[in-house]
Amino acid sequence: MKKRGSLLVLFMSLVLLLSGCSSITVLDPKGPAARTLSDTILFSIAMMAGVLLVVYVLYVVFLVKYRGSKTKDDYMPPHEEGNKWLEAIWITIPIIIVAVLSVVTVQSTGAVEKVAAGYEDQKPLVIYASSSNWKWHFSYPEEGIETVNYLNIPVNRPIELRLYSFGPITSLWIPQLAGQKYAMSDMVNTLNLVADEQGSYLGRNSNFSGQGTAHMEFETLAMSPKEYGKWVDEVKTTASKLDETEFKTLLSTSYVGRKTFSSTHLSFSPAPGDHSDHMKHTDMENGNKEHQENKAEHPVPANPEETKFDAIPNVNPNEPLPQSPAEDSTEDIDHTSHKGK
């Protein structure tokens, strides 16, 4: 039974290693949400190591002490029904452990679902992140720009990612910034994150969505607000616009590299409505076959303001941004014109 003992030593040393090791992405957070999660994980590992220790000590002691080869031949093990005090101990202590972990869980879950503490007074930067086979589209309605397969964000500013999918369920995960959340075709999920250190962080789709899942990686570049503003300006002046035809082509292409546009797809293909609204829509502008056939029945809303906004890029980042229709409220994103049908 030497193996069990060494397994324990191995596990303990790995646990110690974990806490000091920075090559482990999940435990190397670069933002408050990921830091909360990293702390939670390390706390639970410490607690669970205690549990393992108790079980392993009892296990080794009993196996060494009561092996048949050590006892006398005529030794007859006693009949034991159980012991209510011992049983009470190993019911009560686990309940206490679970209670402690429950409190930690509820607190940390609540914390990472909200805008991180200390950033509540800032207006979050809303970015729509949508997936299609097999790429990520990032639409910045405030700036009126869109990227494919890369995400640039300013540091120390709360980011509100609004996730949805043009196909199978995907899960957007940037381990060093925040935990993951699903992107689905019939509702929008919100993922709050802040990067508090400049740098490049790998993001990926962690939920299996077909053949190209393994390739759905993207770079998240956290840059200073100044650089970010410069980048936005540059995109607006140099990148081409994203029109509906091009977007449809983009959706149907399996693999594309990075792309940059000076307008978003939200104007002609808005995000799905909130979930309560789900049963009312019979359709979403999501590029699936069904929709294409129903196109005539559900004309795309032609909002003159949108066109105006798209036509005049906002050159100066310090000027107040024109309100994008998609950012207004969910009501606007809804297929208002569809409802009339």
Binding site: I41, T105, T109, P175, K181, S206
Partner: peptide, 22 residues
């Protein structure tokens, strides 16, 4: 027991945002 204690770790919803699908 290792499977069990990691199960408890996974059960913590917040931490699961980092373990899920991995």
């Amino acid at each position: 027991t290792i499977g069990g204690v990691t199960g408890v770790m996974l059960a913590m919803a917040s931490a699961d945002y980092q373990y899920h699908n991995t």
